[in-house]
Design a protein around this nucleic acid. Structure first.
Length: 208
DNA sequence: TATAGGATTTGCT
DNA sequence: GCAAATCCTATAA
């Protein structure tokens, strides 16, 4: 029996105000809630990636602020949503204002509003998605939760339209660190955090 | 205004 | 495993 997800305490700004790798690790097992388009959807985070403010050429913030990445320099707890290959990816801003750091949410375990996710994720597919295919990738979960550029820069700490929450007293999850997916620089860094052995991640095989 | 490239996904081989 | 689809962004001219 799962708790009533809508009643879980949401993560406050202080959660995001720390080292980006610590946030990326701590986000595994937390919930993401979306009440967008009048629909409630939610899932549990099972995969993240850290994008660091220093020594990380793969970060969008590495070359300074542009109109696209300005949200990365906003207050911790802000959403940074960007478009790539005509899809969207959802990040949470970390550390301090003006720093330029974020954690990419790469996969969720679908938990709430699964029928809605299925409908949203069916739009540009020829075959209906399996439940595993609903949120097993950064752009997939955005589509399933209805996240797009209109959420870029929004505050995640208010618990209104898009927010993160935790289950009080939940056990820590087993974590595996790997190389980040899809980046063409800084490939030596192990900044991808995966819930070990979870079947719903974006890559079934967890390469080191 | 033109061009190159990307923190992706999908379907086919 | 591979490549096409697809479009937004940054940079240069």
């Amino acid at each position: 029996m799962s708790p009533l997800p809508d009643s879980l305490p949401y993560l406050r700004r202080i959660f995001y105000e720390r080292d980006t790798t610590a946030v990326a690790r701590a986000l595994l097992g937390k919930w993401v809630f979306s009440r967008l388009g009048g629909k409630l959807t939610a899932g549990i985070i099972i995969e993240t990636e850290a994008y660091l403010p220093q020594g990380d050429p793969a970060s969008h913030a590495a070359k300074g602020m542009t109109p696209r990445n300005r949200s990365m320099f906003a207050a911790p707890g802000t959403a940074y949503v960007y478009a790539i290959h005509s899809r969207h990816c959802f990040n949470v801003v970390t550390e301090s204002p003006g720093i330029g750091a974020a954690v990419l949410i790469r996969a969720l375990e679908p938990r709430e509003g699964i029928a809605i996710m299925r409908t949203r994720r069916s739009s540009r597919r020829s075959q209906p998605p399996t439940e595993r295919e609903l949120c097993s990738g950064p752009a997939k979960l955005c589509e399933a939760l209805g996240i797009d550029l209109s959420q870029d820069g929004s505050d995640l700490t208010g618990g209104r339209k898009l927010w993160l929450a935790e289950v009080p007293g939940a056990s820590p999850v087993p974590v595996r660190m790997t190389r980040r997916i899809g980046v063409t620089s800084a490939q030596e860094l192990r900044l991808r955090f995966v819930w070990a052995e979870h079947p719903g991640t974006s890559r079934p095989r967890l390469e080191g």
